[in-house]
């Protein structure tokens, strides 16, 4: 059943996102055709800058829409009148959240791949070849020394990016779920909870930073100087652990609301 849920979720996502991504690729292609002329005329410069602006706008719209569709799919499917149907399915709330999270993350990756393809289209030709040469040179330079540690750094950074992405999406889900507890203006309440939570995090972070200045860091500094690779591994793993813990918390909040405090429109 979960597979079918994921499949339908994917279809719904594609229905909205596919035209956006095709438009992005189309604008990139148009941009490349315009850049073929390479003239110094003022009229050409205006056209060139306009096409660059259109491409940047398409990029931003694609990125924002990926997040917006993920949130709206979660909200509409589980907390509006559609929810009456969704919760009659033989699927637990955790599985609902998991299905939506999986499709949202997959589509984030698809959008990133589309953006990469659009950049390749825009720079197609000599410039793209040189771009790949430069990237290859930098990667070779990066892994030329301290290779084993740097490979592990790369893996840890990748895991960290995934953990942060998943945590952010689950944070939106948790805010939407908590917003449903309001009697009126639930979406506004969800926004309020999000910004309120952000504000509290900022204050807590500042207080923590001030508090940390009073600690004795000599031992840590000594360790960092003697083990530069070790300290980087520790920091990266701590960040991954932190975001995994936060993801678990957000997941638990959403699941609890859906299991025990559901209040559909």
């Amino acid at each position: 059943m979960v597979k079918k849920l994921i499949k339908h979720e994917f279809t719904a996502f594609t229905r909205t996102m596919l035209p956006m991504e095709l438009i992005l690729l189309g604008v990139a292609l148009l941009n490349r055709i315009i850049h073929l002329f390479e003239s110094h005329d003022t009229s050409y410069a205006i056209i060139e800058w306009s096409s660059n602006a259109a491409y940047c706008i398409s990029l931003m719209v694609c990125g924002v829409m990926t997040v917006a569709v993920a949130i709206s799919r979660f909200y509409k499917n589980l907390f509006t009148s559609e929810g009456y149907l969704s919760f009659t399915l033989p699927v637990t709330p955790a599985q609902h959240i998991f299905a939506k999270l999986l499709v949202a993350c997959t589509y984030t990756v698809i959008t990133m791949v589309t953006v990469f393809i659009s950049i390749c289209i825009i720079s197609m030709g000599d410039y793209l070849v040189e771009l790949f040469k430069a990237a290859g040179y930098l990667i070779e330079e990066l892994f030329a020394h301290n290779t084993v540690h740097r490979i592990f750094f790369a893996i840890e950074v990748l895991i960290m990016c995934v953990a942060v992405g998943v945590s952010e999406i689950l944070k939106f889900y948790a805010c939407i779920s908590l917003g449903q507890r309001a009697k009126k203006n639930r979406i506004l309440a969800a926004f309020g909870i999000y910004f309120g939570y952000y504000f509290v995090c900022q204050i807590f972070g500042t207080v923590l930073l001030i508090g940390m200045t009073s600690f004795e860091w000599e031992g840590v500094v000594k360790f960092a100087v003697n083990n530069p690779n070790g300290i980087i591994h520790i920091v990266l793993l701590l960040i991954v652990a932190f975001y995994c813990a936060m993801s678990a918390l957000y997941f638990a909040v959403s699941r609890y609301i859906m299991q025990k405090r559901l209040n559909l429109e």
Binding site: R32, I121, M124, G125, D126, Y127
Partner: peptide, 14 residues
């Protein structure tokens, strides 16, 4: 069309 672009030079790169 896509392959044709591969043969295009770029003034900035030149």
């Amino acid at each position: 069309v896509v392959l044709a672009f591969s043969f295009c030079s770029c003034v900035d790169v030149d």
